[in-house]
Design a protein around this nucleic acid. Structure first.
Lengths: 117, 117
DNA sequence: CAGTATCCGTTGCGATACTG
DNA sequence: CAGTATCGCAACGGATACTG
């Protein structure tokens, strides 16, 4: 499960919440997940979807997501290199959460109306 | 809406996700929200629920949540001081998200069975 | 009780340049 | 194309002590 930013699982029950959040917080994770919900993407494609995220950060976040089993990294032995990222079963199972976030966000923050997915 | 850790709202639509996540990430926010879902709590009570969270951090997180309009801080002009924290309407509207996180966490991380709420 | 102030080590993360 | 290496500053956040 990789090393989490905070490995404290000792609070009162309900902190499955924290555990869950721990997997999708981080500057870009939720958006990566969100984008992958739309299908497999390559590194640069993903990067292009997220201006403001440096390759360094993207790599970092992708590695963590992979380590947590939420995404799958498939490397093709080709030249030029080709690497595809997609959601794992576990990652896919987060769809309800991602949707809930998106719905809440567009309802309550009143942003991005009419442009979502 | 306070200053967010990253005020980038310029990625492709769907980033209402990011906006939403931005409000509940931070080391302790989701758990605070989760606890307040159970009802109003005072500072120290809240702190007691979250060992590992220093008063400094708790204050910090509470202030951010307050600034984002998710919680309400009610100060009683008494001595000794008494301050109560509770969810605002907006905060309450996040319940589905919190629940989704909790459900997913206990289902997929297979932790905390039988102790939740 | 409910914080605040200060100190200070740790980590995050952007910029830039380089590689198989 | 898909990264990695290094640098360097800034923000995070723990420990501790103090206050209205």
């Amino acid at each position: 499960m990789a090393k989490r930013r905070h490995s404290r699982f000792d609070c009162t029950p309900g902190c499955a919440v924290e555990a869950a959040i721990g997997l999708i917080d981080g500057k870009w994770k939720s958006i990566i997940l969100w984008h992958l919900l739309g299908g497999t993407l390559r590194f640069n494609a993903l990067n292009r979807e997220m201006p403001g995220c440096t390759p360094r950060m993207l790599t970092n976040q992708l590695r963590e997501l992979e380590a947590d089993g939420l995404i799958v990294r498939k490397v093709y032995a080709e030249v030029p290199p080709k690497v595809e990222y997609s959601l794992s079963e576990l990652g896919l199972s987060m769809e309800p959460i991602l949707r809930a976030l998106q719905v809440w966000g567009s309802e309550n923050l009143a942003l991005y109306r009419g442009g979502s997915d």
